[in-house]
């Protein structure tokens, strides 16, 4: 099964939850894969000792326009939904704005004059690692200046396959990259904080998931530092509360130093283990063991 771990704008602990959940499952010998889907700023790797296994580039095809063959009909520009073909016939200017191009191929199709050919452009890379505990960690990394990380994320998720448990550390926000990531998941864990900001972020994520018909559950991080707004809200929405993790300077320091608290603190490891069991027994296929 695929579990997406997400958290609105970020900074509320989704990476913390994703990496520790992965660590606990991996530690007890289950088949588990972690996919870092935050392609704009992947950082899951920081928490593991891991060796690189494989790497490939994700590309798409962008148009190349030959001015000599162009008959200035304007079809390519009007077919492009993304304003990626800059076309001013009076000045004899036609130009592809590559970082706006989505590689959809509509313009090549539209051109009847054979003026458009295509060339591959690299969008990012997908790198597979194996952690010291023997589990795969797959990182998506978008190339700087690209418009959208979606293709790179999708390629990384595909690379993870379908065996055992796949944990997706989802990109922040609720826009396209988030939607495309959680769309592939069987279950979504939303990590939030008990503050007005946390609540408003959570609301947005929940509303988005509702439109997608996705089941979700909530983990409240730093549960003892805020108010009751988040709890009241999830009760009202009948969203299961998976766990509450209290603020602990030891956890915070451990995280900021790139270490995993579940490798150091048995109590918290236990909390994550029961959390994992809750998700897997309630929603998994039961075939998650080796």
């Amino acid at each position: 099964m695929k579990i997406a771990v997400a958290s609105g704008k970020g900074g509320t602990g989704k990476t913390f939850v994703a990496t520790n959940l992965f660590n606990v499952l991996s530690g007890r010998g289950e088949k588990v894969t972690l996919v870092d889907c935050d392609a704009e700023a992947p950082d899951d790797l920081l928490f593991f000792e891991a060796g690189k296994r494989d790497e490939f580039e994700v590309t798409h095809q962008v148009p190349v326009i030959s001015k000599d063959a162009c008959t200035w009909c304007g079809r390519c520009s009007s077919w492009c939904n993304y304003n990626a073909i800059f076309y001013v016939p009076t000045a004899k200017v036609i130009e592809v704005i590559e970082n706006l191009c989505h590689g959809c191929g509509a313009c090549s199709f539209a051109c009847n004059s054979g003026a458009i050919t295509e060339k591959p452009v690299v969008l990012g890379t997908v790198t597979s690692f194996t952690t010291s505990a023997g589990s795969p960690l797959i990182e998506s990394r978008m190339r700087v200046n690209e418009m959208s990380p979606v293709r790179v994320i999708k390629a990384a998720i595909k690379e993870a396959g379908n065996e055992g448990t796949v944990i997706l550390d989802a990109p922040p926000g609720t826009s396209c990259p988030f939607v495309q990531t959680v769309d592939t998941a069987d279950y979504v864990v939303l990590v939030t904080e008990p503050t007005p900001f946390g609540l408003s972020d959570l609301r947005q994520s929940v509303e988005t998931l509702k439109t997608m018909n996705k089941k979700c559950a909530v983990i409240i991080n730093r549960a003892d530092i805020g108010d009751n707004g988040v709890k009241d809200y999830i009760e009202e929405e009948k969203i299961p509360l998976l766990a509450e993790i209290n603020y602990d300077p030891v956890i915070a320091r451990c995280y900021s130093e790139g270490r995993l608290i579940t490798s150091e603190d048995d109590k918290i490891a236990g909390l994550f283990a029961s959390l994992a069991d809750k998700i897997i027994t309630e929603h998994g296929t039961g075939s998650n063991k080796w």
């Binding site: 304003n83 076309y87 009076t90």
Partner: peptide, 21 residues
């Protein structure tokens, strides 16, 4: 027409005004 475009509002607007000379 480009004020609410998701992407590429700038180039599309240049195109629009340029077409008016």
């Amino acid at each position: 027409p480009n004020r609410d475009a998701q992407e590429g509002a700038g180039p599309a607007s240049v195109q629009l005004v340029a077409s008016r000379d």
